[in-house]
Amino acid sequence: MKQQTLHGEKVRKTVMSVVLSVICIIYVLPVLTVVINSFKLNTYVKTDTFALPIGDMWAGFQNFIKGMTFGNYPFYKSALYTLIITVLSTALILLFCSMAAWYIARVNSVFCKVVYYLCVFSMVVPFQMVMFTLSKTADRLQLNTPWTIPVVYLGFGAGLAIFMFVGFAKSIPIEIEEAASIDGCGPLRTYFKVVFPMLKPTMISVGILEIMWVWNDYLLPSLVLDINEFRTIPIHIQYLKGSYGTVDLGATMALIFLSIIPVIIFYLICQKYIIKGVAAGAVKG
């Protein structure tokens, strides 16, 4: 009897494994389709979407070469701008929001409470609510270049970061900081020597959420940046569709492939943190 249930269990697990494997394959198919089409000649992408790029259809690296300058905008530029914006924004958010959060957690003033609750409030406000006024404000303050738009990200992204940092900072025992203070550390040194290192796990979670948000963000930069000069990857890909002249589907697929690669590499390296960070940010969605 027991033997039988064990056997039944084993069969059940094998069946589940098989079913999951099949789903797994279905799951990677869309990405594989992008990969095979990026090596396919343009004219076949439309007619033979799911065929392997063999024989007449094989395009070699032609799509990638064409894609580099496709859409009257060099791809390396949009990749570079996306990287600059993502890195700067994330750095700004991590530094300033963790500082502010520590201050809010430690100083019990009305102003701090107001800032904190405004931040929590901002998390439920959809971007469309502020999109028009924010883009005008950013324009007036010259926050419309890849080097200045991180300020906008800091402002609009502060809510979630502050919320997460405050939650964690409150759980840090205050005695350690007091000891540092007795040792003669000023608040700034206390922050960088004591608090900052301890915030590291939250830093990683917040950092990953911000990287994923900023890297993939389309609407905010498309409204704020001067599109003719600065295009992030999502903007570039969206504008390929609307550009005058015929869209080269092969080259587009090559660009999409190229733009997914860094994301996948990032994911495979930081998988553990990403899954944790994303789960932590569940409240924002």
Partner: peptide
């Protein structure tokens, strides 16, 4: 030290959220 710790975030938060809202 509030101006240093809160200042940058509050300024950006006003630009990026409070005022547009």
């Amino acid at each position: 030290w509030g101006w240093l710790f809160l200042g940058p975030v509050v300024a950006a938060f006003i630009i990026g959220f409070v005022w547009p809202f």
